[in-house]
């Protein structure tokens, strides 16, 4: 069986690539995709730790299921906000959405 640290290394890589996408992209939809990548990396970590460290305690899988729920809610609300902003400002570039900047 593959050792645990390889799963953790791949998850860390996916998380950091997602973080780079969130920090550097200009399009709001692309930023949301980066957030999805980061949540997914967290899920890989949760399931890997569950399998290797506490396989009898269902906390790992239960937490991963809740992360799924959060990801679905976040995607739905985030995309609704993006569509609403696009309707009023004709743009999905995050730098253009600065009404709250004083």
């Amino acid at each position: 069986m593959v050792p645990l640290w390889m799963f953790l290394a791949v998850a860390a890589g996916v998380f950091c690539i997602g973080a780079y996408g969130v920090l550097s992209r200009r399009n709001a939809v692309a930023i949301l995709m980066g957030v999805e990548l980061m949540l997914n990396a967290v899920n890989i970590n949760l399931i890997a730790f569950w399998r290797y460290v506490e396989p009898l305690n269902m906390a790992g899988q239960a937490f991963a299921a809740f992360v799924f729920v959060i990801a679905a809610a976040e995607a739905a609300v985030g995309l609704a906000i993006i569509i609403s902003v696009y309707r009023s400002r004709r743009s999905v570039i995050v730098e253009d959405v600065d009404m709250l900047k004083w």
Partner: peptide
């Protein structure tokens, strides 16, 4: 859902720069 959002906002055609000014720092 993301495909729908991309289509509805027609955001893929008019972006000349995909990265903002702090992309090097982010990397």
């Amino acid at each position: 859902l993301i495909v729908f959002a991309v289509m509805l906002t027609r955001s893929m055609t008019r972006l000349s720069d995909i990265y903002n000014s702090q992309w090097l720092l982010s990397a």
